[in-house]
């Protein structure tokens, strides 16, 4: 589904990704771990097409198409979803309206019919339950005044509504207490299907107790330095990042 080869990227002329190779097949869950500054969030942002990053080399294929050629909204319409590490506030725009617009844009791009507000509410009903959110949230402005936990749940709600093919969770676990973490993980697990894939970017192993990955990759200094199964995460937790990256890697 996703094939990354030799991907390099810079921000303000500083190279952050120095040749990433990663293949994600349909139905798989990959965890990307690494110390601060290793480039794992950059990888997530580059896959979603954030304008602040410049791709300087390599290629990314998504369902056989060149992902890097696409505008961010096209990537979204094709089924790439990024759960933001820092979800953005949009004052004055209701969550419900925002979600319905996004939902319909994606349907339109797929040649499907738009849904009207009443039908959309029915869809929302069941998704809200999944992330244990109250429908009051639908009438509040997007992320405005939300607590950290509410923002992250809101990201998962959006993911549940938009049903992406490839979901990228960028440190969705950071700053969450254990209850919120469980809710977020349940949401992700509920969406697991043979035709959907997930990349979980995280600093801590904790989240992987709930979202069990098929593969774990360790990123350091802009490269994948080690890959393995789910046990790699536990080993990392026990031994620390220095074990795979060396002290220099951790410092980078």
């Amino acid at each position: 589904m996703l094939k990354i080869q030799g991907l390099r990227a810079t921000v303000s002329d500083k190279e952050i990704l120095k040749g990433i190779d990663l293949t994600v097949n349909a139905g798989e869950v990959h965890a990307v771990m690494g110390p601060n500054g290793s480039g794992k969030s950059t990888l997530a942002q580059v896959l979603a097409g954030h304008p602040a990053y410049t791709v300087t080399g390599g290629s990314v294929e998504f369902d056989g198409e060149d992902l890097l050629e696409m505008d961010p909204e096209v990537r979204a319409q094709k089924g790439v979803f990024l759960a933001f590490q820092y979800p953005v506030e949009i004052p004055g725009v209701s969550n419900a309206y925002f979600l319905r617009t996004a939902y319909n844009e994606i349907r339109k791009a797929r040649g499907e019919e738009e849904v009207d507000p009443m039908d959309f509410l029915d869809i929302m009903e069941q998704k809200l339950k999944m992330v244990e959110m109250n429908d009051v949230m639908l009438n509040r402005s997007v992320n405005t005044g939300f607590s950290g936990g509410e923002k992250k749940r809101n990201e998962i709600l959006q993911m549940a509504v938009l049903e992406p093919k490839l979901a990228i969770l960028d440190e969705t676990d950071s700053g969450l207490d254990i209850d919120a973490l469980r809710v977020v993980a349940n949401g992700v697990n509920a969406l697991r299907r043979p035709d959907r894939s997930t990349i979980v970017v995280t600093h801590y192993q904790r989240l992987l107790n709930y979202i069990v990955p098929d593969f774990v990759h360790v990123l350091a200094n802009g490269r994948i330095v080690k890959s393995g199964g789910k046990e790699l995460a536990l080993e990392l937790e026990a031994k620390g990042y220095d074990w795979v990256t060396g002290p220099q890697g951790a410092a980078a």
């Binding site: 979603a48 961010p72 953005v88 004055g92 844009e105």
Partner: peptide
């Protein structure tokens, strides 16, 4: 904010839609 626009684009909206949504939110009161 560039971040606001990117966020809305990542959810499948065009730049025009994103701007119009942000402006209408700004003026809603």
């Amino acid at each position: 904010g560039e971040d606001q626009i990117f966020y809305l684009k990542q959810r499948g909206m065009s730049a025009e839609q994103a701007v119009s949504m942000i402006v209408s939110g700004f003026c809603k009161e």
